[in-house]
């Protein structure tokens, strides 16, 4: 009888210890496992990519994240083209910016890519006279479409941007 009681107590202790250890685990471990599962499904967390572009590249301007309800108005890309988006823009002093979109499908991704491509060309025309020093950034803009994902990075460090995006 006493053996049974001891066994039950030990099981309870082990279960509680396991629960306590799991509960005290860092959130990052949970995030890591999520990232792995996402990776297995060949999907991309555009927010992570955008934040990496934001944090790992040095910008001259102060970039601010656009709220979701402003993205359509500022970029001119229709809301029904994308599922989620994260966009950083600056004060107007430089051409630096970050645009990351997860389109609703691959066709919409192509449309977004086309819009951003046109936009970069327009920016080149505008900055050519206004701030020629920004032309290097625009000429080396990293614009990538991969499946239903579209990324644009305009910065001084296009190599780093490519590394992050690809």
């Amino acid at each position: 009888m006493s053996k049974k009681i001891i066994s039950m107590i030990m099981c309870a202790v082990m279960a509680m210890s396991a629960a306590a250890l799991t509960g005290c685990g860092d959130d990052s471990s949970a995030a890591e496992s999520t990232a792995k599962s996402v990776s297995a499904e060949k999907s991309v967390d555009i927010s992570t990519v955008a934040d990496k572009l934001f944090n790992d590249i040095e910008y001259k301007d102060q970039l601010v994240e656009l709220s979701e309800d402003k993205i359509e108005g500022v970029t001119g890309i229709s809301k029904d083209k994308f599922k989620s988006a994260k966009v950083y823009r600056g004060s107007g002093a430089t051409a630096e910016e970050i645009d990351c979109f997860e389109a609703v499908d691959e066709d919409s991704a192509k449309d977004i890519y086309s819009s951003l491509s046109d936009y970069v060309e327009k920016q080149k025309t505008r900055y050519a006279d206004y701030a020629p020093a920004e032309m290097d950034k625009l000429n080396n803009a990293v614009l990538v479409q991969s499946g239903k994902y579209v990324f644009l990075s305009i910065s001084d460090d296009d190599a780093k941007a490519k590394e992050i995006i690809e």
Binding site: K70, V74, G92, A93, Y127
Partner: peptide, 24 residues
């Protein structure tokens, strides 16, 4: 407006405001 208004547009917390502005 010009590029200064572009900066204002980027930070403006009111999505219903309309901006017709361009660099330069």
């Amino acid at each position: 407006g010009d590029s200064r208004t572009v900066g204002l547009q980027n930070t403006c917390p009111y999505p219903k405001a309309v901006f017709l502005c361009n660099i330069g």
